[in-house]
Design a binder for these strands. Structure first.
Lengths: 117, 117
DNA sequence: GTTAATATATTCCATAGCGATATATTGTGC
DNA sequence: GCACAATATATCGCTATGGAATATATTAAC
């Protein structure tokens, strides 16, 4: 199933939702970058895909802002991974971003005339 | 009502939805740039706002791609306005973008754990 | 021993949003 | 008659950033 130019729309939309998606995924438990990218791909059924060149710099930005907190975990028989967990500050931001997303999605649905999206 | 950092989310998200919103607004009848920007602001209740430096170049792009068709209208007692109407090609793109938006919004809702957004 | 999958990382380029600014016209209040 | 706000279109220049390409390292599979 391939929509005409749908990839353009998705590419652009993805940008704004990236933070919300990442924060949401590390809400329940710490996760590492690769896991996050794979989760987004699977759960969105391909509608959202992250380029590593976007994902990792974004994780650094979120950490620098104090919204997530990363620490290296070394395990025998595994590559070292950096697990990120949500900080209290990040939890507040996540709540705000959820509200922002809902307001935005509602507005787009209203204007674009999309019923029960 | 001001959400923490919500402007960041909105700024980014806007990019991807801009085309969808504009195409939707010129679907029913031709409209000019200023009218489009005001309509988006009003109908979104402030959740989406267009900077003129984004709006006009975007209109030119859409026209260049053949999705909308603009023509100048001069009226006594009014500044000249450029009215844009949706082309048949634009109509197809709009339908595809609506589907793309729905798929995207559904994916974000699923991942971000937003209920009935 | 070669390939694929996992996992993190960076460089470079093109795109594009937006603040600032400009121009022109019409309507309103004083 | 004049200042000001609203309408309407337009562009310059800065900056952010997304993504292709590429690199490195480890483990599993064949």
């Amino acid at each position: 199933m391939e929509y005409i130019n749908s990839h353009i729309l998705e590419r652009e939309l993805k940008k704004g939702s990236a933070e919300l998606l990442i924060l949401s995924l590390v809400e329940s438990r710490p996760r590492h970058g690769y896991e996050i990218s794979k989760l987004i791909e699977r759960r969105s059924e391909g509608a959202v895909r992250f380029n590593v060149a976007s994902l990792y710099p974004l994780l650094y930005r979120l950490e620098k802002r104090g919204w997530i907190d990363g620490r290296w975990v070394e395990k025998a028989g595994q590559r070292r991974r950096r697990y990120y967990r949500l900080t209290p500050e990040g939890r507040k931001i996540l709540a705000a971003q959820r509200r922002g997303w809902q307001a935005f999605a509602a507005a787009v649905n209203r204007i674009a005339g999309v019923e029960h999206a």
